[in-house]
Design a binder for these strands. Structure first.
Lengths: 224, 224
DNA sequence: ACCTCAATTTAGGCTGGCCTAAATTTTACC
DNA sequence: GGTAAAATTTAGGCCAGCCTAAATTGAGGT
């Protein structure tokens, strides 16, 4: 349990993520993501929907989506989060598996001025240390053709673009395997039954075995 | 009115400041400092006094002082605040009159790890950009013999050590007058009636007139 | 079509921290 | 030493956001 209640921004960010696939954000999944009871989510969604202007569109028993105003806030928060992650790595020497929590707290505390100064110091970057796109100041997202590794067929070559940043343990495992953003690889083999991927990392002779969970956490750009 | 309620740390910091002169922190002054009603302060002081361990010693109608535990928290918060101020100036190029508010929010959001990394990056500094002492990691304060300018007699020479950081407008006025930490000066004259100080800044021919309010905001080290 | 069950919402309640107004105590002055 | 003013505390409420338990509803299997 997080020691503090999720903020409005946390709700919007969570809806943004659960909504990326075009579907509605379900009460239960929001509750799980935010560490509160489902009943609390219902209450908050009603509040956010009746804000002026409304931040979410809420349909009873069907879930929620963001309005343009809500999406702006979500993207602005995402921008701050990812800028901070990069800042922590580049300026304060954090490991890439240590930045998520810290950024999670800082993103609520920094001013627009500080956001701008950090971005300038970092050279207006477009991607964070995990390879995730950083929304521009106008909140547009830089393009990337990344796809979960789970969708890569055997024989294909590609490059790792980003990895999910939610779980530090996963990040450390990836690090240990040498699977960082930028690394090239070939998919040697896929097994249908247990859904394993055998990856040969560029420059290394050995193949690495990736389970289904990891394969969902690694995003890659595939060669055409 | 601040847009958010003061935190426990804010209460402790305020008590710390009001208590520096050895007296008790009065309810009214705390209320003014924190932007809440006096009745709210009474309630919070009771809570802080019954915390385990107690953070303040509260005596009905007499005010509050910090317990050792409370003072540790106050000093730790002060350390974070002043480290952040220096960090903002040195790393992000803030003006020294712009850092207070930002640090006020950030001091509640950074982890011990981040505090340590910032301190390391800055070379374990002992004073912030306003000249205020930064508590060491063990929370001891570096010594300084600073005294408010208001207490300097005519004819005395000295050096500005620090200035109060609470009011950006004051900071800008001081800046404009060339009254920054480190600057040497001579007190040319004092007037008893309206309590003015005439200061000749080292290297300049003109004297500067300082009113009583400013004279309380400037801390100086006097030559023996 | 129905029925079960998982998901969701409603109802009711709690806590923390704020507020105002009224009561009380201290202080300070004559 | 008495009293008016100032400071402080008490009393009583409000609000946001959380919780649990109970009621409702939609959806998939048969």
């Amino acid at each position: 349990m997080p020691d503090t209640s999720p903020s409005v921004q946390d709700y919007l960010k969570a809806i943004y993520r659960l909504t990326r696939d075009g579907r509605q954000a379900a009460t239960n999944r929001l509750a799980a993501a935010l560490g509160v009871a489902p009943a609390s989510v219902t209450g908050m969604l009603k509040r956010l929907a009746s804000e002026q202007p409304p931040l979410v569109v809420y349909r009873r028993r069907r879930g929620a989506t963001l309005t343009p105003a809500g999406e702006r806030i979500a993207l602005a928060t995402l921008r701050r989060h990812r800028l901070l992650e990069l800042f922590l790595v580049r300026v304060l020497g954090y490991g890439w598996d240590e930045v998520h929590e810290e950024a999670e707290r800082l993103e609520h505390a920094i001013s627009a001025r500080m956001e701008a100064r950090i971005a300038r110091l970092l050279g207006e970057p477009a991607f964070d240390p995990h390879g995730h796109p950083i929304p521009a100041p106008d909140l547009t997202l830089p393009l990337s053709r990344a796809v979960p590794l789970a969708q890569a067929a055997a024989g294909v070559r590609g490059r790792i673009v980003s990895v999910s940043d939610a779980d530090p343990a996963v990040l450390r495992r990836l690090s240990a395997l040498g699977l960082l953003p930028g690394v090239g690889f070939t998919v040697v083999q896929r097994t249908a039954g247990d859904n394993l991927a055998y990856l040969r990392v560029e420059g290394s002779a050995e193949a690495v075995v990736i389970g289904p969970a990891l394969a969902e956490a690694i995003f890659v750009e595939l060669d055409t």
